[in-house]
């Protein structure tokens, strides 16, 4: 039995396949939804923690990919050079996962790594190029 986090990226076209349902029903995977941003006509993101034997997880990933849904294990981590940050907020614009937010009283950037789905959009959005990916883990 192993637990892994995955980022599922859905195409803007509605998929008729009940993917999460089938992962539970057919593959007997224990699923914990960590983050979801799905609405009609938009690219959707779903962050899942899936617990199942390694072999089953592999099969499940195959199943997901067959339905034109991207499935990437969440192993990488984003970090940024906090000391150089000017707290402009540009990165919060693209952070659909809500990991990067502006403090209402501090006017400072807050980074909640727990919520980060490593979509990497902040790497491009930061005008000072302060974000990078840690792939050492």
């Amino acid at each position: 039995m192993s637990s892994k986090r995955f980022v599922l990226t859905f195409p803007p076209e509605l998929t008729s396949e009940p993917i999460t349902y089938n992962l539970i029903k057919q593959y007997d995977i224990m699923i914990n939804i960590l983050n979801a941003e799905i609405s009609p006509g938009k690219i959707g993101h779903l962050v899942l923690e899936m617990s199942a034997p390694g072999k089953v997880l592999k099969q499940a990933m195959e199943y997901i990919k067959q339905h034109n849904v991207e499935c990437v294990p969440l192993e990488k981590k984003i970090y940024y050079q906090q000391d150089k940050c000017i707290h402009c907020g540009s990165c919060t614009a693209v952070c659909f996962a809500g990991a990067l937010t502006m403090g209402h009283t501090t006017n400072e950037l807050h980074f909640n790594a727990e919520k980060c789905v490593v979509c990497e959009l902040c790497l491009k959005a930061c005008p000072l190029k302060l974000f990078s990916i840690d792939i050492s883990e």
């Binding site: 000017i86 707290h87 402009c88 907020g89 540009s90 919060t92 614009a93 659909f96 937010t101 502006m102 209402h104 501090t106 006017n107 400072e108 005008p127």
Partner: peptide
């Protein structure tokens, strides 16, 4: 805009500043 969310055409949209209020203050 500074609240972090606005509604446009009945849809909630995340708002984000590009100008630093911290440094402006």
């Amino acid at each position: 805009l500074f609240s972090g969310e606005m509604v446009l055409n009945g849809k909630k949209i995340r708002t984000a500043p590009l100008s630093s209020i911290k440094v402006a203050k």
